[in-house]
Design a protein around this nucleic acid. Sequence first.
DNA 1: CGCTCTACCGAGAGCGCTCCCAGCAATCTA
DNA 2: TAGATTGCTGGGAGCGCTCTCGGTAGAGCG
Lengths: 338, 338
Amino acid sequence: MPAHLTLEDIGRLAGVSRSTVSRVVNQQANVNPAVRDRVEEVIKRTGYAPNRAARSLVSGRSGIIGLVIPSRVHTVFDDPYFPRLIQGISSAANETRTTLSLFLFQSEREEEELYPRIITSGYLDGLIVTATRMADPLLAQLSSGDLPVVVVGRPDVDGVSYVDADNRNGGALAADHLCGLGYQRIGLLGAPTSTTAGVDRTTGFVEGLARNGRALDPRLRVDGDFTDSGGYAAMEQLIEQRPDAVFVASDTMAHGALRALRGAGLSVPDDLALISFDGFPASETSQPPLTVIHQPATRAGEEALHLLNALIAGAEPPLKKILPVDLVVRDSTEPRQP
Amino acid sequence: MPAHLTLEDIGRLAGVSRSTVSRVVNQQANVNPAVRDRVEEVIKRTGYAPNRAARSLVSGRSGIIGLVIPSRVHTVFDDPYFPRLIQGISSAANETRTTLSLFLFQSEREEEELYPRIITSGYLDGLIVTATRMADPLLAQLSSGDLPVVVVGRPDVDGVSYVDADNRNGGALAADHLCGLGYQRIGLLGAPTSTTAGVDRTTGFVEGLARNGRALDPRLRVDGDFTDSGGYAAMEQLIEQRPDAVFVASDTMAHGALRALRGAGLSVPDDLALISFDGFPASETSQPPLTVIHQPATRAGEEALHLLNALIAGAEPPLKKILPVDLVVRDSTEPRQP
DNA sequence: CGCTCTACCGAGAGCGCTCCCAGCAATCTA
DNA sequence: TAGATTGCTGGGAGCGCTCTCGGTAGAGCG
């Protein structure tokens, strides 16, 4: 038995031609049921699987899509967001029989060397790119090509398909919640404004305050960098301004902020209330459990793959999908007695 | 300009044949330097990249390796180990110009359906499998094929290439540290014995106690399941036996254990000392910062890819690599005054 | 100056598959 | 019964590449 069985081999064993075996494998009509059964029996017996390279050479499809995580994303290893996103993409990929290739760039050099050949070598049917910053050069390079692309997170250019959480509404919900509870000196520990997520969460928060007749005191705003230690440092600064409630734009930063608060001997929510954005499991077991704006990260991954599949199937870009977020009240916020 | 440039196109533009362009692309000798320059100029100008499917059809190599994470791994999303491992593999892959495909199985059904075709369709040059449990059926299926495989974590069968942290020595180091500090009632919050890592860490710990003239009191041992909540539950049980020090077999479980301790009003290390295994960044910022046995997860990923590349290049399995672990002392352990 | 040797280049074959078209038998229509 | 139609099958072409082989020009040698 040869290392690799071919259509021809199966045909010989079943007493039919290559073409007929191909038709059986691809579930096409116009095959005599008896013949089909015979061929399928041989395939099952021999464990034949079609050669993907040959198939993709002629069909122009590889069945492989790429997930690109740019070099600027330093938080891949510490933010629970990415594992969840990947899990969602992978789950949808398994369902649709597509293979997921992962391109994790850890330096700009890697990115510059590898990225161009990834998008031109033609062995990817499509690409999912996690957008992280405004004016992302990765997106610019793509616009010329004809490779289907879906961005996770709102890109700052038009005409690109994307899926995103409703960051803006999330920010507004956080403001509503805090205002409704009666907090007075409401602060913001924001996400970097170099990212659209950061911009949107902040914008939404400010809008939310406004519709409650409030404005954000600039002194009560410090931006973090999506990391735990960034949240810690930002909260240390914020404390000095004595806010009574703070919206932290990500769970990871919120955990850092919590540490800063404990370090300063402040208790949550008595001295300072906290509401965070993300709502990953760790926010349930922190002390105290955090009130959060929950975003469906896994589902974002699934939706990204679905949009991409639609694009590959011929849908006209841009396709867009905004996923709802929702408020989950826990112990880090509570009604304020004036 | 056609959607896809071919060797023939480049040849026409440079006034040479397909064969010559191929030689240039593949950096072979026997090409006139002037011709080579001319061809390279055209390639650069047009942005030509060889079609991977065609190349792999004739060469039998795809340049793609797969990473398989079995369905039994529920901790992928919450244990920092996996992102780090993936990061290591990806980094080494980028360096060696190989593409990483990710197979994340989330149910046994997915695994059973997809796994066989992954290993037979012949578009993977090799496979990295994260081993999690004893007698893993994924490994059994592979033995028959001729696909190069490297397992991350010690498999429980012979003849398989693998890379692993020195779990056994790590356990022993933890015992040495605790004994050296003067702790008397030393407990173990173990990892599941259905995994080789769990077995090895426990074995090493028991051996370490033995060489310090101690034995592990069975009542002071409770096993967790690698999760935060598992660590919490196990520590709640352990507390009743009043240990003065506990070796927790993973960082994630240690964080759960810390919560249980706080909940019980016990302080670390005064009431109970803790040493953990992993040494991820979060162990530095916990309260208190944890003394840990640090394992190089990222490097494990890199080594796995290197071994796999060696196998693909023709090395004879089994190839093995055991990575050293080391003790990092922080605040969760301290010398005991008798 | 004729021969060999080397350096370089192009043409052909073929990797395993899909798609298209021709062929053939059986069935249907007028 | 002749012609058209249908159901099924096989063979040829070709996807873009690599590899082998044969050919040509120029250099080196006696």
